[in-house]
Design a protein around this nucleic acid. Sequence first.
RNA 1: CCAGACGGUCGGACGACCGCUGAUGUUUGCGCAUUGGAGGAAAGUCCGGGCUCCACGGGAAUAUGGUGCUGGUUAACGGCCAGCGGGGGCGACCCUAGGGAAAGUGCCACAGAAAACAAACCGCCCAAUGCGUUCGCGCGGAGGGUCAGGGUGAAACGGUGCGGUAAGAGCGCACCGCAUCUUUGGCAACAAAGAUGGCAGGGCAAACCCCACCAGGAGCAAGACCGAAUAGGGGCGGCGGAAUGGUGCGUUCGCGCACGCAUUCAAGGACAUUCCCGUCCUGUCGCCCGGGUUGGUCGCGUGAGGCGCGCUGCAAGGCGUGUCCCAGAGGAAUGGUCGUCCCGCGCGCAAGUGCGGACAGAACCCGGCUUAUAGACCGUCUGGCGGU
Length: 123
Amino acid sequence: MSSDRLDPPEQQPPPQRLKRRPEFLRVAAKGRKIPTKGVVVQALACPDQASVRLGFTVTKKVGNAVVRNRTKRRLREAARLYLREHRVAPADLVFVGRDGTRGRKFDRLIADIAQALEKAGLA
RNA sequence: CCAGACGGUCGGACGACCGCUGAUGUUUGCGCAUUGGAGGAAAGUCCGGGCUCCACGGGAAUAUGGUGCUGGUUAACGGCCAGCGGGGGCGACCCUAGGGAAAGUGCCACAGAAAACAAACCGCCCAAUGCGUUCGCGCGGAGGGUCAGGGUGAAACGGUGCGGUAAGAGCGCACCGCAUCUUUGGCAACAAAGAUGGCAGGGCAAACCCCACCAGGAGCAAGACCGAAUAGGGGCGGCGGAAUGGUGCGUUCGCGCACGCAUUCAAGGACAUUCCCGUCCUGUCGCCCGGGUUGGUCGCGUGAGGCGCGCUGCAAGGCGUGUCCCAGAGGAAUGGUCGUCCCGCGCGCAAGUGCGGACAGAACCCGGCUUAUAGACCGUCUGGCGGU
């Protein structure tokens, strides 16, 4: 494992976070929606942006606060590990947790993300 | 050992790698190092407080909401502790909104004669006129007595027994219950004993109500500061409604003009309501200050604080002392993955293997209450069986 492999963001700045409800709504309305078994990804390419911006959402349908927290944490960690290893074009990405997120094997969850981003043409 | 009652504790453990976030140290800085990082309920938001802003002058009455056996405890409580009364259990123990029904109003369905100044459906008893008669009485029943018996009901105007009576009835008596009074014990709720009374006051106040006590409003999206323009807004000054008086100036001596200088009258609004007294606000011009929202900083964790020990109190708790600093986010950290062990379930003869880990996630902070909770453990006590 070469050092430049471990240091992939040769030019890639660290991802930002989506924080405002309007930002989430914009991605949901204009972006592409790619469902997988473990996660639903909403992607909106933003070529002008310097970096990727990430948002995480779990609806109340999935469970109570404890379940939603755990689901969100797994998504956040999976996205972090994926972005550490791969370069992604600037975009706003919203990861929507679902019932399957919690029981999904972790490496499968990462694979779901990779597949979704490939489909979106960002990876 | 079995069955049970009460109280309490814990609520997966360890390690590796990769992360997030607060604090401290260090560095020009990127960063690095050290260290901390969810709960007993963090939940529901049902009570009580701290804190913050607003309102806030006094008195009387009223309204609204809450509490409701007694004593204690506390910053406070509707909490807790210790008792009392009532109910349940063989027992350990458990349950209990438990002031006032002789202040008033109201309600008590169905059934039943009657549901509250009692009352006569059946029955029981007395019995006039009348009819019959073997003159003993029989039939019949105007009217009256009666609540013991029947029947209804959640509840029927004390219960059981004896006497008594035409039949009955607290009509009389004994015991029990009840009421009143006295004494004793207790701070008290209340308890016990005695005397008197022939029985009064049916139940419902979780119906209105009465009585006693308590209570300003809104909440950390409170609130403070920083911050570019406009508006609202704030401060200071001038002017300012009507009448009368006063002062000044002018005057053709009729008066005119100016000025809150004084007094009175003003209209609307605010302080839960009403009343009384009282306070405050309002228009216009000029100058100055100021700055809706978004964002940032503070509020923000040393506190009715945790743990230990001693004294004190039956206890809740109180007093003293030592020691510790123990989450602080802001789309919101407190984690992710893997391994070993523990526990549960499934499969398997077994080694093993697969799946899962109760309820549940801080958001200003405390004291309670309520609700959810797989499983494990500890202590005290009760009943039963066995042994000595």
